[in-house]
């Protein structure tokens, strides 16, 4: 069996006295699209942020393409005990709040990290950025500042910005939750295309329709653990666990 793209095992995370992740395992194969659902406070966003070490776990192992990301004992605590650069160069993330750099144009947002982190020449970076922005349908907005763009447009720029680093895995943290409803579709479409092109994706979302159509696997989290996982048809249509049923009932508005 091929080594999974990402392997997380026994992930524990606490904030002060509160334990938010109580032992979570996840394997994601190359090209797989995994959607994570759950109520707020379930730890799903925290878990996603563990994958790219924005929230370094206290306990647990992370393997990316078979490589152990942990630096080993004695290398300090927090982020220092992990191979940060290795992870961040292979894992891209898109945030709920977009977090575009307001003092840079759309184009510059996408070229900045290419130049400063990957050391690409400004020509190279610009070419790649232009290509990506055209791909997400924003070829005519290259010189605009984020404040001139709609939420949906900003989020698509954010996706292009993450893609410009040639990641192997893309993480999406509730990327449509902050958008007006009519802008959600354009972002989901972009994500759909990305999935179709074979990108490995872990998506935390409330968009059940998207999960049903695009995900290879759906995971339901609650209270810091994975409650149920499986193909979307199973988890969404015929959930086994009581908590899953409750959550879906609430989201879908059925009893």
């Amino acid at each position: 069996m091929a080594e999974p793209m990402i392997r997380l095992e026994g992930i524990h995370k606490r904030f002060g006295a509160l334990e938010v992740l109580k032992g979570v395992d996840l394997h994601v194969a190359k090209g797989e699209v995994v959607c994570i659902l759950g109520p707020s406070g379930s730890g799903k966003s925290t878990f996603l942020r563990c994958v790219n070490l924005l929230e370094p776990p206290e306990q647990g192992d992370i393997y990316i393409e078979g490589n152990d990301i942990c630096k080993g004992p004695g290398s300090g605590s927090g982020e220092q005990s992990w191979k940060l650069d290795f992870v961040r160069q292979r894992v891209g993330i898109v945030f709920q709040q977009f977090n575009l750099f307001p003092h840079k144009t759309a184009l510059q947002n996408v070229t900045l990290a290419q130049e400063k982190v990957l050391g690409r020449s400004s020509q190279e970076a610009r070419a790649k950025a232009t290509e990506l922005l055209e791909r997400v349908g924003l070829g005519d907005k290259l010189g605009q500042y984020p404040e001139r763009l709609s939420g949906g447009q900003q989020q698509r720029v954010a996706i292009a910005r993450a893609l410009a680093m040639d990641p192997h895995v893309m993480l999406f943290d509730e990327v449509t939750s902050a958008l007006d409803p009519e802008l959600v579709k354009e972002v989901l479409d972009t994500m759909r295309e990305l999935a179709a092109e074979g990108m490995t994706m872990i998506v935390v979302t409330h968009e059940l329709g998207f999960a049903r159509e695009v995900a290879d696997r759906v995971i339901f989290m609650d209270g810091g653990v994975i409650v149920e996982e499986g193909p979307p048809a199973d988890v969404l249509e015929n959930p086994r666990e009581e908590r899953t049923k409750q959550f879906l009932g609430l989201v879908l508005g059925t009893s």
Binding site: N99, F101, L112, M165
Partner: peptide, 30 residues
């Protein structure tokens, strides 16, 4: 400067110093 700015910069692979220099401080300056 919203914390998300720093997070985004770091997630793109920027070191603490680069994130400050290119993303946070230019915004703080205004």
């Amino acid at each position: 400067v919203p914390g998300g700015q720093f997070e985004a910069a770091r997630s793109l692979g920027m070191s603490y110093g680069k994130a400050m220099r290119h993303v946070v401080v230019p915004q703080a300056v205004t």
